[in-house]
Design a protein around this nucleic acid. Structure first.
Lengths: 155, 155
DNA sequence: TGATTAATCTACTATTTCTATAGATTTTAT
DNA sequence: ATAAAATCTATAGAAATAGTAGATTAATCA
């Protein structure tokens, strides 16, 4: 499961991107609109900034903007930044590799072999889906759900 | 990440299956061989029994045995039993569905759409790989790693 | 240059989940 | 009866997650 931190980060990024991502948005506004505890959001946005995903401007007329484009921001990157390894066991993680504690022989561990396969399938999705893609899906889904007008009805 | 509980459960099952699964194995033996805290293992094995994966015999000459065959025991089932939902957000979990807390419209959530896709990819692996398959991979891997004998060398 | 605005920094606190244990009880075999 | 082994009840400690308070720094604008 994603932590609240990771979900908040993704929601905040979606919000900023949805607003264009270019002019400074206030922490307070993002917190209010996305129902995120303000002080917690501060921590999160700062981390995203330090990682180079966001940039900020202090003082009056300040706020947060995207540093990367929405096509450059991958879900996997944000989730790893907030929660650490995505893989189910540390011994198959690329970015956060650690040997499993009492593992006798990593090379012949059947479980590890399955988990490595799972990691591949997971990374294939999370390292390719971008923030832009999430926004596109959002739009597409709300179009499909929208009440049909005469012009869109069956013709 | 898997909890220690889930890892211990999988390791214990592997051990029992590796011994044939038919004659009673002692908690104490499994704990010792797999480096699992004995009292913690008690809890785990009991849960596996209550779920119908294992069966047990009390008293002298007692112990734990497999109730299901190794082909019937799916990794996904064990992980869900120990850790709960595998999906990254509760709103796409089949077995442990809960709406995300401040989600406005689940049907049009772009993130949820991606997470549902990821759940499919994950379940496809974890609900199909069995304990038997893990043991097969273990064997295959240790064969491949084994020091080559004259007869197995290049002919 | 002083007031105001807004991010940033330092240092916590609370809550929940995970990991683990102690000790008594029940069941079975011999 | 006795011993062996699972089972039950009830906690306890440790770690991770979630959230907060208050002071500081930077930028704008009047």
């Amino acid at each position: 499961m994603l932590s609240k931190k990771a979900k908040y980060a993704l929601k905040a990024l979606e919000y900023i991107a949805g607003k264009g991502g270019d002019e400074p948005l206030l922490i307070a506004e993002i917190a209010r609109e996305q129902h995120i505890p303000r002080k917690f959001l501060e921590v999160i946005l700062l981390e995203l900034k330090k990682d180079g995903v966001l940039r900020s401007k202090m003082g009056k007329n300040g706020g947060y903007m995207l540093q990367l484009t929405t096509e450059e921001i991958k879900l996997g990157h944000i989730i790893r930044l907030m929660d650490g390894a995505i893989a189910l066991v540390p011994c198959v993680s690329f970015k956060y590799y650690t040997p499993c504690e009492e593992c006798i022989d990593e090379a012949t561990c059947g479980l590890r072999n399955v988990m490595a396969e799972l990691r591949e399938a997971t990374n294939k999705i999370l390292d390719n889906v971008t923030l832009a893609e999430v926004l596109r899906r959002e739009k597409k889904l709300s179009k499909g759900t929208r009440k049909k007008t005469n012009s869109s009805k069956l013709q």
